[in-house]
Amino acid sequence: MTEPVTAQAANFLPGPVLLLGAPGVGKGTQAKALMAAYGIPQISTGDILRSNISNGTPLGKAAKTLVDQGTLVSDDLVNEMVADRLKQPDTARGFILDGFPRTLNQATWLDAQLSDDPNTLPVVAISISVDYEQLLHRITGRRISPAGRIYNIYSNPPRTPGICDVDGSTLVQRPDDSEAVFTERMKTFQAQTAPVIEHYRNQSRFEEINGDQSVEQVTADIEAALIRLRQYPNS
């Protein structure tokens, strides 16, 4: 097994990190682990959008008009918000991108944006890979108690089907955890994000990690991959 390299985190400059992978592979969990290890922020386009709208910034006002009309916020507007966020001082050592770049157009914009700053490292992409059937089980098998306890009927079932082990409450399946919704999300992923994976794979700034392991082992593999990519970017 690969040993975690968190002990080296204080002296390691992770730079911009993009976590990729299909819905349910565990990107959010791994992003939190990397934030803790390296002291870098997670940059979520959803959070940026909500922050701009709530603060009434010029970008937020433009976005709110589109949202109120039921129109998707354009790539150009999202790019402007990301560019503004990357100017903040907490990104100096690096950052983890969440939900961006989601398309090839956004990826090429990001590369150009980062290359304009000689003090910023290029983004490295790490794709977490899990077998389709395993992902399907992770999503559709999820059951949640009213208190937020999470079970999975395949990998972590309650002792009594449909009942929380702790308080005896009824477990529910969220509407978003249905097979129909998962199938649509996978179609979107294949259409939009799969080309982003190939974009970075072709630039030798990419590694694929087996996500069908313990959370701790996936974290260790990601940290090791980051060090390899920063030390030997063209290997």
Rank of each mutant, 00 (worst) to 15 (best):
M1E: 06
T2D: 11
E3D: 10
Q8I: 02
Q8E: 09
A10N: 08
F12D: 00
F12W: 11
L13T: 02
P16R: 12
P16D: 07
A22R: 07
G28Y: 13
Q30R: 03
K32L: 13
K32W: 09
L34P: 09
A37I: 00
I40V: 14
T45M: 13
D47A: 14
I53M: 15
N55C: 11
G56S: 08
T57Q: 08
P58Q: 11
K64S: 09
V73A: 10
V73M: 14
D75G: 06
V78Q: 14
V78G: 09
M81E: 00
P89N: 08
P101L: 12
R102L: 02
T103A: 00
L110C: 07
D111H: 14
Q113K: 13
S115W: 08
S115K: 13
D117M: 09
I128T: 03
E133P: 02
I139H: 01
I139F: 04
R142V: 05
I144F: 12
I150W: 07
Y151A: 11
N156W: 07
N156M: 14
T160S: 14
D165T: 12
S169V: 09
L171I: 08
Q173M: 10
Q173V: 12
R174L: 13
P175H: 12
D176T: 06
S178D: 08
E179L: 15
A180I: 01
E184R: 15
K187G: 04
Q203W: 09
Q203R: 14
R205K: 11
E208I: 01
Q217F: 02
V218Q: 02
T219R: 10
D221F: 00
A225I: 02
L226R: 07
R228Y: 05
